[in-house]
């Protein structure tokens, strides 16, 4: 079994209105050192082993559904786990 962590964020050149609002809030709390805030999504998938390469499968899922690559970037981490 694999535990897959998928992180989806807006692409760097795409304005992130939520991130900007949160940055403004942090500044108003006097965290002036905050340069940028990007808000994204975190997804955790539990995936059974199959004949297919897990890396290829996760990449395919990200491209097809989990991220919209017109405006979003994604990255993921794959960890092998033992499920009791």
């Amino acid at each position: 079994m694999y535990k897959v962590k998928v992180y989806v964020t807006l692409r760097e050149n795409v304005l992130d209105p939520q991130g900007n609002a949160v940055k403004g809030a942090l500044h108003s709390l006097n965290y002036r050192e905050v340069q940028d805030v990007r808000i994204g999504k975190f997804m955790e998938l539990l995936v059974e082993k199959s004949d297919r390469d897990i890396d290829a499968v996760v990449k395919e899922m990200c491209e097809k559904l989990l991220a919209n690559t017109v405006i979003e970037d994604y990255r993921y981490e794959i960890e092998e786990v033992v499920v009791q």
Binding site: L10, V14, L15, P17, Q18, A21, N68, V70, I71
Partner: peptide
Amino acid sequence: GAMRRNNTL
């Protein structure tokens, strides 16, 4: 193309 959140949130 794609849709983003409204800039007004």
